[in-house]
């Protein structure tokens, strides 16, 4: 029973006979600690290894293989359209209308 109550306290619950009532501040701290510990044990690891990136490194995968040409084309669209911004690589961040 004693070890059971210790466990409950660790989880932020108060032991009173066989009944347990929530102790909210302790519960919150326990949950946060638990999350941090869990994160520490199994944090997300990079899932694509360096030796698996041949395809990504191929020049045909570039978002902007020719920056001068891409910048020019963004400029054309920006001049003819009301929208501007978020063009990505090669865009000039043009504020022009």
């Amino acid at each position: 029973m004693r070890s059971y109550c210790v466990l409950l306290r660790c989880l932020g619950l108060r032991c009173s006979g066989l009944r347990c009532a929530p102790n909210r501040p302790l519960l919150l701290v326990s949950l946060l600690s638990g999350l941090l510990l869990t994160a520490g044990c199994s944090s997300i690891q990079p899932w694509v290894k360096p030796y698996e990136r041949n395809n990504l490194a191929d020049p045909i995968m570039s978002f902007s293989p020719d920056p001068v040409e891409a910048g020019y084309l963004h400029h054309v669209f920006q001049s003819r359209e009301g929208a501007r911004g978020a063009e990505g690589g090669g865009g000039g961040g043009c504020g022009c209308n």
Binding site: V48, E52, R53, N55, L56, M61, F63, R84, G85, A86, E87, G88, G93, G95, C96, N97
Partner: peptide, 28 residues
């Protein structure tokens, strides 16, 4: 006067998929 603020995030999703997100605010 023009001011431009841009945030970008590029992420390798799989060994064959690359994605990019951009948020851009411009004030005149």
């Amino acid at each position: 006067t023009t001011r431009s603020y841009q945030f970008g995030w590029t992420q390798v999703i799989t060994k064959n998929l690359l994605m990019n997100f951009i948020y851009h605010v411009i004030t005149d």
